[in-house]
Write a protein that binds this DNA or RNA. Structure first.
Lengths: 340, 340
DNA sequence: CTGAAAGCGCTTACAG
DNA sequence: CTGAAAGCGCTTACAG
């Protein structure tokens, strides 16, 4: 691989001049020198060494995105948003799947820090884990100390997201929609209590019921994993508890998908016997049978804005937190309560 | 951010000694010096600068994965496989969505090259585009010249994949399975002719029919995009052509999903009136209604092996191409031909 | 076991 | 408009 020294030598100029030409900086260089450098660069197939430049600038045009799982449609949609914005600026995107493991998240944060990535975006919720959070905080401090930006797209140990949605209001709106359909026995699949976002959504459930004047029956609240298996297990748990319910409000779509499947296996018609609602509106939500009623989150937009937020921070701007709108989307998995 | 110089100073040793301790190289350092360096590093929250190290080694522990679209379940599954293998070795993964645009692919290849990524994995099929392929070849040459590895997981301009599957045999096996069910009028949704992989799969279709002694009716072959929209459009095209068919074999699952949807809208029962088969076995294939019959590809394993292949190449080993097994999975979207 | 020094490939303040 | 030189933070061959 040719270096700028070789380009300069071939062009018969100093490396300073060569750098000024290929670096596309706004610095006066004679037309003749410019052309010779360009020709030499082309001839040698010169591609600048981003590591050398990065060492000098103490940062590289890379944004790290820490997600829970890149195969989760929620996260790859967000990542695509980040990438679209990043690509327009010549930035590369590193994706890190933490599997909601605080240690793995820390390990990725450290790696990104050692790389001097220009920005680190935490796409998923923070994990409730005092010890690990202390270490994570150290890394975040270190990243910022390097002049890099840190952006959160979901609630975390240190507070609300920089770019996010109102989870409480979003879930409450879905609960209200279910109440509107005549449901009063609404179960809630809460996701893991170890996630800040799950706690917020549970708060939304309580608020939604409260606003409808319905008392919370704790037997209707089920802690679950944040995936399809968790949704299926949630249905089993409800059945095992022998508690009556005509609707299930899920803290995310994956849970709803699992619930749909298990309910089908159990011969419970959706939405005939039970209404099922999701949250997030991942791309497959409109493809399930029945099509899933859910709350739409502007996932790709969150990714885009997360990146832009980081760029502005890097620019020294003072960036205000943004709350993006959500929208209840009633499709075919919810219906008026049976017998009403 | 503290540098090794500061760590050395605080520990009262030379940077050489400090480097030998924190770099975890196997070099004799006195127990006393070691402890002092470790203590200093901890105190300063020292995290080595990967850019400085990378400049010296002319490579960084990063693998770039160029995919067609990270939101496509095929690709994020492969990427997850790469990440799982990479993470075990302390490598980071950069994901690049080309949108099957040869220029965007080239631009990513160049960026990865400028970063001196240790390896570049092309997860998706090569794009048929003579001009762009020449530029891509230059980048691949440059990447290899830097001592980095290039791995293909799908057919491309320069030949077969380093780690992949036998697309021809895979599709032919599905065609055989459909023939076995009594189908003779089997349509084929081919994907874009601009993709090497789509061409292979079309060849598989022809071979499958040939082996069954069925002549190819070109009116049954429809070029499509490689997504759900393409599958829906394919159904419309078949209808417009007024050609008879009892089964549709799709070059990938996304096409099958689109076909399922459009067929449903048209009131054509699946599999009652028409059998539909996919290819890839992406994770949602088992969730559609009806559950999709398809050909299983070990996507995550392909990603893992792709990374391992790259590491071995970096190690100077001579790595032989690997063809991973595929398997026909008949679920509920295919059935015996109507009236048989 | 220890450390001084060179060098990886850039960019840029400085002097001309 | 041009270029010599310093320096970013590491690692390692070399001399002790």
């Amino acid at each position: 691989m040719a270096s700028i020294t070789e380009v300069a030598k071939l062009a018969g100029v100093s490396t300073a001049t060569a750098s000024r030409v290929v670096g596309e900086v706004n610095y006066p260089v004679s037309q003749q020198a410019r052309e010779r450098v360009l020709a030499a660069a082309r001839e040698l197939d010169y591609v600048p060494n981003a590591l050398a430049r990065g060492l000098l600038k103490s940062t590289v045009p890379i944004v790290g995105v820490i997600v829970h799982d890149i195969t989760d449609p929620y996260f790859n949609e967000v990542v695509r948003g980040v990438e679209d914005a990043a690509n327009a600026t010549g930035y590369l995107v590193i994706t890190c799947s933490s599997d909601r493991d605080a240690q793995r998240e820390n390990s990725y944060a450290r790696l990104l820090r050692s790389l001097r990535a220009a920005a680190v975006i935490f796409a998923g919720s923070g994990i409730v884990d005092g010890e690990s959070n202390a270490e994570l905080a150290r890394h975040v401090t270190g990243i910022r100390a390097n002049g890099s930006a840190v952006v959160h797209l979901s609630p975390h140990a240190d507070g609300p997201p920089d770019v996010g949605v109102d989870n409480v209001a979003g879930i409450a709106a879905m609960v209200a929609a279910l109440v509107e359909l005549g449901h009063t026995r609404i179960a809630f699949f809460a996701g893991p209590a170890s996630l800040f976002v799950a706690r917020e959504r549970l708060t939304g459930y309580r608020r939604g019921l409260g606003e409808a004047g319905i008392a919370v029956d704790e037997r209707l609240v089920v802690d679950t994993a944040f995936n399809r298996t968790g949704g299926a297990a949630g249905v089993d748990e409800l059945v095992a508890r022998g508690v009556e319910f005509s609707a299930i409000c899920c803290a995310n779509d994956l849970l709803a998908l699992g619930a749909l499947q298990r309910l089908g296996e159990l011969g419970r018609a959706v939405p005939g016997d039970v209404s099922v609602a999701g949250f997030d509106d991942i791309s497959i939500a409109a493809l399930t049978e029945p099509h899933l009623s859910t709350v739409h989150l502007p996932l790709r937009e969150m990714g885009r804005r997360g990146f832009e937020n980081a760029m502005r921070t890097l620019n020294g701007e003072d960036v205000a937190p943004q709350t993006l709108p959500t929208q209840v989307v009633m499709r075919d998995s919810t219906a008026r309560r049976n017998g009403q």
